[in-house]
Nucleic acid binder design. Structure first.
Lengths: 228, 228, 228, 228
DNA sequence: AATGAATGAGCATTCATTCAT
DNA sequence: CATGAATGAATGCTCATTCAT
């Protein structure tokens, strides 16, 4: 390998390292302050680079935000694609995707918060658009799974959108209430309970099953008597 | 009425009118820009007053935000109290409260958006605190109704918090997706469907369909036997 | 007395009372904040009048300051005139005037501070001019007394201005160091010591008197011996 | 010298130059207006930099004031330390220090005015504290010299504080009266006269004149007798 | 005469962005 | 590529002053 090439590589590696340091610093700062309240100066200092360097790697502050969001969705899409391929059963797949969603939300909350409150107008039109686009692509995996489920099941007259709102809304409401503060919480348990709620309703299936069983029991009695 | 008194009244009326104009202007501006991106100068201009006047009526920009939030919750609490007294059946009450919530959200969306994204750090500590307090009081009405429902029903093992997250989260997710843009939507229908989802579960149809089939099968049997 | 007249009097009395209340409030506020840092709003509130009323009695904030300074000098001039007439001995008169000066400074310090730091440009040109004029008139009494003293005494080649600087400067330096804070101090004692310093110098007269006496004593001895 | 180093040096040199330009501009502006009445915008314009640059070099307007005061005292302390070491005789030392004080006051009057009117509440608590601290350190040199003098002389019953008040007060009173305006004056002469006043008292001439007369009278007697 | 709501010019300070080195 | 000093438009807020009532 020629020196020129190795230099090039090491230079582009260094460049990438700097870029990464800035992104990382930005995430850290955002865990403490909001994106709007975070200053490019603070981010640069935390990243150990000069203030001007930030603008060498990102067009402007919004570009930094966009890169952050893109990075976030790279992980998200990567995960969800894997899950998509791993599960043929749509119901299991849906659960696994939801599970990954809540886990990623927790793991990257400072950043994820931005995505969750996408309606708050942090970014310029370009950033918002990019965010919406990512969101739609990501959500589509869920809607697809739902449609598959509905095709298998009969008589499900609840639109996928409503389910989606309840699922994502529920998870995000939980996230906001618990991840912001250091409050102790059990995300896994929450998801299981939310699942039960969304799939069986607030009134546990058992009770209506019991009632139905007793009806069947009586019917069986009648049949027997009629047989007799 | 003496002149002094009438003067006092008319002056305080004018004062109140100015205050109202500023609040109204702020709401309008916020429908176009975010709170953070709205400038006191713009608000004043829209309200038709001098910039200094804003600070005559509100301690600072945050105070304006706080007043806006307080105003919002005055309506919300007023409504929910009425509903609370009008419905003895907790299930009906809960539905009515949810209905009012989604209606108010739509009617005052620019302002409501602030409340919904309470986790975004718009405000100073004081504002956030006030918001959290209002939120808790408001949500309590829902949790109370839920608890009453759960006492009446048997075997409900889903915690109220989970239901609350799914209910508020679902509604807010719907609101964010639809109220922000001028997209056409039917909030009433959405709520009915969400209700069905939360109370019966997405798959309720299926399991009861299966059961129905077996019951119908048995009834058919009986009819046949009676025919015989 | 006609009703119209009594009304007029009572009205002008009320007017004067309001004016006085504002001046008094201003003095009080200035004891806490500086003149520049005192706000017309605060002064009005303390005086128990509306903010606009201040400008009914004084052309502007500077006018208020000027009135305050004028009031201060009315007292000062009044006192010094009395003292001037009461003492025919210029030395006693000077001491009495200095005594009154330090007493008034202490009694009205918040206000007097303004006069003392007349070089700080608090006021507009008009106010400064008025202040300088008052100061000159007041100081003149001291210079006159000094000149009288110097005419009586022989061989005093220190200009009155220098004495004036040391006297006023000394007193004011003491005032600044002690009246600003609540530090305990004895103004009377200070003045006596300053007097001694200014009239006899730092090296007490006694000691040089003793030395001179010893010289005279030796001279006397020589005379005796010569006589013998 | 490597390029990096020379760059660093030249950059930090430029930085220092900018800082100096701002300080200089501030001094100049203060010669025309008071500190309070001087605007950061005006200072920046005079310094030939952008307004924001001022805040790059100083925390805020108060910080600029503090830097100015610190700079002033650096010179003052430097001078007084030299003088302290140069004179073993406390009386000569005291005179030299006073001489330097009045010279510096005149040379840097616009700035010195701030220090002299330290009781006027220009600055925030931090600035005032720093000023008081500098003042105390500076004055201590004078008090020390005074104490030495008093140990050498007998019967000096005037407290050092009183002398200090008269000395500094006198000088400052003179400065205020003469340096503010372009009035012609002779600081050296003033100081000599003040010295005479403080060390011998205004009436020294008189009492010693009387004594001198009696001594002369006696000497005349002796001469006559010797003649006889 | 008194009120107090309204004014608006003015100010210190911030911070994303640029550019000479 | 990287630096960091410099920029300057933009903003929230102040407060002496005015004026309709």
């Amino acid at each position: 390998m020629s020196t020129a090439q190795s230099e090039k590589r090491s230079q582009s590696q260094r460049r990438e390292a700097t870029r990464g340091a800035i992104l990382q610093a930005c995430k850290e700062i955002m865990a403490e302050e909001d994106f709007i309240n975070s200053k490019t100066g603070t981010i640069a200092k935390r990243a150990g680079v000069a203030e001007g360097t930030v603008f060498l790697h990102f067009e402007n502050k919004q570009g930094l935000l966009r890169a952050l969001v893109d990075d976030f969705f790279v992980t998200m899409h990567c995960n969800i694609s894997e899950i998509h391929q791993a599960h043929s059963c749509p119901k299991e797949r849906l659960k696994a995707m939801a599970q990954d969603y809540i886990e990623q939300l927790e793991a990257q909350w400072p950043l994820a918060r931005l995505v969750v409150s996408s309606h708050a107008r942090y970014g310029d039109e370009l950033t918002q658009q990019s965010l919406r686009c990512h969101n739609r692509r990501y959500t589509q995996f869920f809607l697809d799974a739902l449609d598959e489920i509905k095709q298998q099941e009969v008589d499900c007259d609840i639109p996928s959108q409503v389910f989606r709102d309840a699922l994502f809304g529920g998870i995000e409401h939980f996230a906001i209430a618990n991840f912001n503060t250091g409050k102790s919480h059990d995300s896994q348990q929450f998801l299981d309970q939310l699942w039960q709620l969304l799939f069986q309703g607030i009134l546990s299936r058992e009770s209506s099953a019991i009632k139905k069983n007793s009806i069947e029991h009586k019917l069986d009695k009648i049949i027997k008597k009629l047989d007799a």
